[in-house]
Amino acid sequence: MENIELKKTDNAPAVILNYAKGFIELDGKSYPEDTFEFYVPIIVWLETYFGGKAQPKTVVNIKLTYFNSATTQSLFDILDAIQDGEYHELEVNWFYDADNENGLEDFEDYADEFADLNIKAVAR
């Protein structure tokens, strides 16, 4: 599998999809003009990775700060692809701003919806 690495922009997160390391990370703001199109190759990569190619250990870090409703939905699709897939040891981390009283609300929505993934909240 080829890796995907995208640099952070003003409205799109840095993306790391590293096959050999089993490392997946989204970091930054997320409201690109064509949000769904932005996330399609990421979701396709994840469907392949979790379709029988997962490493013995996979780490997923979600470090999104501000994001639009299309990203909300794309995140659901990302976690859905993981939960429906095949994996061995899996660590999913949701990073949030400890100073933001809303910081855990999004985490709680996804953690409840994808209980099998045992998503961990990580303050930063």
């Binding site: 409201y31 003009e33 700060t65 501000y66 994001f67 639009n68 409703s69 701003d97 100073d99 933001n100 009283e101 809303n102 910081g103």
Partner: peptide, 16 residues
Amino acid sequence: PAKLQDIYEITIELMQ
């Protein structure tokens, strides 16, 4: 930070 996030995200949502 919570209010800032809400304002920021709603502004973007409306503009988009």
